[in-house]
Design a protein around this nucleic acid. Structure first.
Lengths: 231, 231
DNA sequence: CGACGCGTTGAATGTTGTCAACATCAGTGG
DNA sequence: CCACTGATGTTGACAACATTCAACGCGTCG
């Protein structure tokens, strides 16, 4: 954040892009111009599929979204969250099992055309970095679902969300927004909302953290980390 | 496979690359030259980290490998399998939680330098397609781990492996190689080897498929698909 | 032969899901 | 203003699925 040339008044989302490569003024100007006329999507609405038709990427400027997969019998699994400053790569959408991206809160996003990005090597590098980061997040999620129990899953996941939100400056001290229902948390972590509720109760009673009013307050981050194993 | 200009005597792995873009003779010659002097890795050995140091990709020419994450208390989760014709993107390795790629069987792989690939648009496009396919596979795995029970997980996973092996021509009829222990299957699917064993027993007794001698024989593919839900 | 890795099976245990009831709250319309 | 509704959160009792622990068979390899 120190050497990041994107200045204060810019959108947090743009600042986050700048964390992945050293952007010059032209890069930033290009980003700003893309963000100038954002596409607005209401909460609970899908991001329009035509947004992903061409090659390039969609950048989330503001708000939360998720990508989900609905099974025939109604079970749902959220395969990824999209937070401010993160991207939806178009290539990853085409022909995908789960191609719907849905806004959780109201979302502002914008289109970064590939041919434009390609002219700016640093921007292209930043997008590469963001894609790599997304892949890492997917693998971390696989470890969570495969080998962590409910308590560990929730602790570890909340810590990851914190890290990602912090990168766009969305956290305040030991506090972060979490504008999702327990049902949504359950669909991210492969649990039921009932069980999520119980586990959050444990974390609260143990003074590790509290979740209320759409925000998380970490009371004992260190203990939260020790609950969330990892190597 | 019909319009794929990579001919019979070529490595199955190369044929698979050609499925993702229409390669011309120069592209193919380049691939062949890379594959000319493959790097050999013994079973159970890690692929050397320096293979991933530079930008570019490692192509698996032959054999099976996996990427895994070991937790402090010994739990292990395999976050992805690498089959013949698939790639390990270098960007996805750097700074990753789980950076070890381990050979399951003896593996031959080769290095595709980025600057060389970049000169051949079709090759670059093929690599992009392969990366997108890998991402899809990661998300499918998240759905499996999050929402499918053990029976569904195993059925769905075996079907995915079949599809991926078929793409490199490694399947014979309703038969495919599966050179892994039940312990490995368990570490892929977030189960215990004991439970994998029980479930494979069910599938065998129900005449859906049999696993023996490192091969799978599908007896009733249709039923296997219906067990493996999905939307 | 003995050691070891792998597969197989049974019994007990434990974590998570299911079902159900109820509380709380925001929004809606009478 | 209040009753009503629907979505969300909370809690208890019970069932289901998967793990753990343990034992044993089978083959390979030194």
């Amino acid at each position: 954040m120190s050497s990041n040339p994107i200045s204060e008044p810019d959108l947090p989302a743009l600042r986050r892009v700048g964390d992945f490569a050293s952007l010059d003024e032209q890069d930033i100007a290009l980003l700003r111009s893309c963000a100038q006329s954002p596409k607005y999507v209401q909460a609970r609405r899908d991001l329009p599929a035509n947004l992903f038709a061409a090659r390039g990427a969609v950048l989330i400027l503001d708000g939360w979204a998720h990508r989900s997969c609905l099974l025939a019998d109604g079970r749902r699994q959220i395969t990824g969250l999209l937070l401010p400053g993160e991207i939806v790569a178009s290539s990853s959408i085409a022909g995908s099992v789960d191609s719907t991206v849905t806004a959780i809160t109201p979302v502002n996003c914008c289109w970064l055309p590939e041919n434009t990005v390609a002219t700016r090597p640093n921007l292209a590098q930043a997008l590469d970095g963001m894609r790599a980061m997304e892949e890492q997040s997917l693998r971390r999620q696989i470890v969570r679902l495969g080998r962590l129990d409910a308590l560990e899953r929730i602790a570890d996941w909340l810590l990851e969300i914190y890290e990602r939100l912090e990168a766009s400056g969305s956290c305040i001290g030991d506090t972060m927004p979490l504008p999702v229902t327990q049902e949504t948390i359950a669909d991210v972590l492969g649990l039921t909302s009932v069980h999520v509720n119980r586990v959050l109760g444990v974390l609260r009673r143990e003074n590790v953290l509290t979740v209320q009013g759409g925000r998380v307050i970490f009371l004992d981050r260190e203990r939260c980390r020790s609950i969330a194993v990892r190597r």
